[in-house]
């Protein structure tokens, strides 16, 4: 499948992926994340069940302290 991840086109062998699996494949190991799929917020307790499909627009924001 092809998705847009953080404004960039990316291809994956799998036809669907859960958010947990996507984070693992991309090696996103950060704890403090905000994830949006097609503009909708996906909460942490849905990461194991939420399925990303071909054409989805996924935004992963990694939050760090400082300001």
């Amino acid at each position: 499948m092809n998705i847009v991840l953080n404004n960039r086109e990316e291809s994956f062998e799998q036809s669907t992926l859960t958010i947990t699996r996507l984070l693992h494949i991309k090696n996103f190991t950060f704890k403090m994340l905000v994830i949006k799929v097609n503009g909708q917020l996906v909460k942490k307790d849905e990461y194991n069940s939420y399925v990303i499909k071909d054409g989805d627009d996924v935004n992963v924001l990694h939050l760090i302290s400082g300001g």
Binding site: M32, V34, K36, L41, K43, L63, I64, S65, G66, G67
Partner: peptide
């Protein structure tokens, strides 16, 4: 303009759901 990551997360999530 917060300093802590968890406050930044709170603001962004609140805005996505309440001030889209």
């Amino acid at each position: 303009a917060f300093d802590l990551a968890e406050m930044k997360k709170m603001l962004i999530e609140t805005c996505i759901s309440e001030l889209p």
